[in-house]
Measured scan of single mutants.
Amino acid sequence: DLSALRVEEVQNVINAMQKILECPICLELIKEPVSTKCDHIFCKFCMLKLLNQKKGPSQCPLCKNDITKRSLQESTRFSQLVEELLKIICAFQLDTGLEYANSYNFAKKENNSPEHLKDEVSIIQSMGYRNRAKRLLQSEPENPSLQETSLSVQLSNLGTVRTLRTKQRIQPQRTSVYIELGSDSSEDTVNKATYCSVGDQELLQITPQGTRDEISLDSAKKAACEFSETDVTNTEHHQPSNNDLNTTEKRAAERHPEKYQGSSVSNLHVEPCGTNTHASSLQHENSSLLLTKDRMNVEKAEF
């Protein structure tokens, strides 16, 4: 173990290094160091905050020279020094078990990766560091076993998940096959086929009936047209017969005018059967003409 005197000496050296690497504005270890034209180094955030307070150039807090945003430059070497100082402080805390008085939040800088452990060898070769390295080497064999167990647990979990997924996939297939086998029997399929065939026959029977009705309507229309044509021909046949009657009536009127007047009046009210309204109107006109002729003949006879 380190003596108290040596611990104090190391602590004083760390404090001196820390004062050199402090920012003059925030009085902390410089984060993202930036250098000016006057070779003074500050935190990048502190300098941008200072420049944004005034429009135009501002003055350096140490030498009062003008500073602009374009004049600022990043210093990589200074950032490396800060990183190495942080590593020294971490090693000091691990070796002594004491917390550094002016320690900052170094938890963000710590890294437990194997590459980081290899890099620590180049920091300080001390008894405390050696003991700590031995402890780490002793704890390393235990870690692979834990990793193997965790991997086995994960693989077993994956296997159970896969088996569950396969079961879920197989179950719908089985149910679907069961439904297909038990849903419709052979008799049901035959009945469905016969039902479809009967429906098709009914459709075939319905369509000819409609065509037959249309044919019957067409035949009825044709018969009505033929009947009207026969009526017209009958009226045409009746007209010459009426003319013959008129000639006979004229002759009778010349011989017996008194008797014919009474008979002509009675004939006005008689309509021949089986004739249309057109034929009756023609008869009325003929009878009126005959009456006028008879009157003329009677007057001539009187004179």
Rank of each mutant, 00 (worst) to 15 (best):
K192I: 10
E28H: 01
M296G: 05
H256T: 05
Y129N: 08
N131H: 15
E142Q: 11
E299D: 07
L136P: 12
L151C: 12
Q168K: 15
L21V: 12
S35L: 15
V10M: 02
L85C: 11
K221L: 02
H256R: 02
P33I: 09
N102K: 06
N276V: 04
Q168R: 07
S197R: 06
L48F: 14
N276M: 06
L158M: 04
L136T: 11
Q53T: 03
Q93L: 00
I124V: 07
P272F: 06
C63G: 00
C46Y: 01
K31T: 10
I30V: 15
A107C: 08
S139V: 12
E8H: 15
L48I: 10
E74P: 08
V34I: 06
L29G: 02
L48E: 08
L290S: 08
S71T: 12
Q154A: 08
N297M: 05
F92Y: 08
K31Y: 07
K134C: 09
P141Q: 14
K49I: 04
Q53C: 06
C273E: 10
Q261T: 11
N131F: 01
I25F: 01
D95N: 00
F45T: 15
Q261V: 08
T68A: 00
C43I: 00
R135S: 10
T248H: 07
V153C: 13
S281L: 02
C273L: 13
H284F: 02
R70T: 04
E84D: 05
L48C: 10
E254D: 01
C23T: 00
L146A: 04
H278W: 10
I25M: 01
V198A: 08
L158G: 09
N131C: 06
A133F: 11
Y195A: 10
K108F: 13
L29A: 07
A101Q: 15
F303V: 15
S216L: 09
S152V: 08
T189Y: 06
R130N: 03
K49V: 04
E258Q: 09
Q11R: 14
P272S: 14
F42G: 00
S241R: 10
K44N: 04
L85A: 09
R130S: 14
K37V: 15
A253L: 09
Q201E: 06
S152C: 09
Y129I: 09
I67N: 04
Q93E: 13
I30N: 03
K108S: 11
L94S: 03
V121W: 09
E236V: 04
K222E: 11
E214F: 01
R70A: 15
S288V: 06
T163W: 04
T166L: 01
R165E: 13
I206P: 14
R165F: 10
V265G: 06
D188R: 04
C38P: 00
E32V: 05
L29I: 07
G159R: 04
P257W: 11
S216D: 10
A133K: 10
L94I: 09
E99N: 09
F106D: 04
E32G: 02
L268W: 10
K44A: 03
E285F: 12
E202H: 14
D184Y: 02
S216R: 07
E258D: 03
S113N: 02
I124S: 10
R132F: 13
Q93T: 05
L27F: 01
C90L: 10
L5A: 03
P257R: 08
Q261K: 07
I215R: 06
K37L: 11
A107T: 11
T68I: 03
Y104E: 13
V232Y: 14
S264V: 09
K250A: 01
T189S: 07
F45D: 15
Q93A: 04
R165S: 01
L217N: 07
C63L: 00
A101V: 06
D188Y: 02
E148R: 12
P272R: 08
T277D: 03
P33C: 13
F106C: 14
L204F: 12
D188P: 00
S126Y: 08
E148W: 02
L158R: 05
E148N: 13
K118Y: 10
S150D: 06
T36M: 06
R165L: 04
P141V: 10
F92A: 00
S58T: 03
A91V: 00
K221P: 07
S266W: 11
N143E: 05
E8C: 02
I89A: 05
D231I: 10
E28N: 02
D39I: 02
K31N: 07
R135W: 06
R212K: 07
P240S: 05
S228P: 11
Q147P: 14
E74K: 02
P257L: 10
S58L: 01
Q147D: 14
E249I: 03
I30H: 07
Q73L: 08
C23Y: 00
E32T: 03
F45I: 13
K108L: 12
L98E: 09
K31A: 04
G159W: 02
T36I: 01
M127E: 10
E9S: 03
S139W: 12
K134N: 15
K108R: 15
S35G: 04
E258W: 07
G128Y: 02
C43F: 00
S3C: 07
R77E: 13
N15Q: 07
L290Q: 15
C60R: 00
A107L: 09
Q125L: 02
R130K: 11
S219A: 04
V190G: 12
K192M: 13
T211F: 03
A253T: 13
F45A: 15
S264H: 06
E214L: 03
E83R: 06
S139Q: 10
N143Q: 07
Q205I: 01
E148T: 09
D95L: 00
Q11I: 03
E202T: 06
L48D: 11
C196L: 15
L164H: 02
Q125F: 03
Q59R: 03
R70G: 13
T275C: 08
Q80E: 12
E120V: 06
L245N: 02
L29R: 02
L203C: 01
T149Q: 06
T275R: 12
N65M: 14
G56M: 10
E22K: 03
V7G: 00
R77N: 14
S145E: 12
T68G: 02
